[in-house]
């Protein structure tokens, strides 16, 4: 192979090191604390809702989807749902009850950068759940290829 050929190969390899700067990414800001604290007599406790969290997504290349799960399950009788607003052209699955298994939250996300997507968290508890002290769990969002 001629030296000029090796120069071309080297240039291509160097370019490949620059490509990760345009990789897929996702971020989520922290929601406020969710507190179930009241009820109307004769009804289940009132759901606590937070809409302050925001999700940002960058998709490069293939169409992607967002999945989500909890690393720590909720106590019995307590449910946490998450709804993420869909970027243009994508589809939100609406309020999804989070579990230890990844579930689709937003699908059909085409290439692009999307910011300020509202993430709505809702905490619901039945009376059978009893009292739950201040507790933390972690929501893990993942971008994967959407087939």
């Amino acid at each position: 192979m001629r030296p000029s050929h090796w120069c071309a190969v080297a240039a291509l390899l160097a370019a490949s090191r620059l490509l990760p700067a345009q990789s897929n990414s996702i971020s989520l800001t922290a929601p406020g604390q969710l507190t179930v604290s009241t009820a109307f007599a004769g009804s289940q406790p009132v759901t606590s809702t937070d809409q302050t969290a925001r999700c940002a997504v960058t998709v490069v290349g293939a169409r992607m989807k967002i999945t989500g799960y909890l690393d720590t399950p909720m106590p019995a009788g307590v449910t946490l749902t998450l709804s993420i607003a869909a970027p243009t052209g994508a589809v939100s699955l609406g309020a999804v009850t989070l579990t230890g298994s990844a579930q689709d939250l937003v699908r059909y996300i085409d290439a692009g950068t999307y910011t300020g997507l509202t993430a709505t968290f809702a905490l619901t508890a039945t009376v059978s759940a009893g009292v739950t002290p201040y507790t933390s769990s972690h929501v893990i969002l993942t971008l994967t290829v959407d087939p």
Partner: peptide, 26 residues
């Protein structure tokens, strides 16, 4: 080179959620 640009096809975000259920007597 193309593969290197797509190796990050999966990306994750981890966020803490805090919650509480208080005593309710109505």
């Amino acid at each position: 080179a193309i593969t290197a640009g797509t190796l990050h096809a999966q990306s994750s975000a981890n966020q803490t959620v805090t919650y509480e259920v208080q005593t309710i007597n109505q």
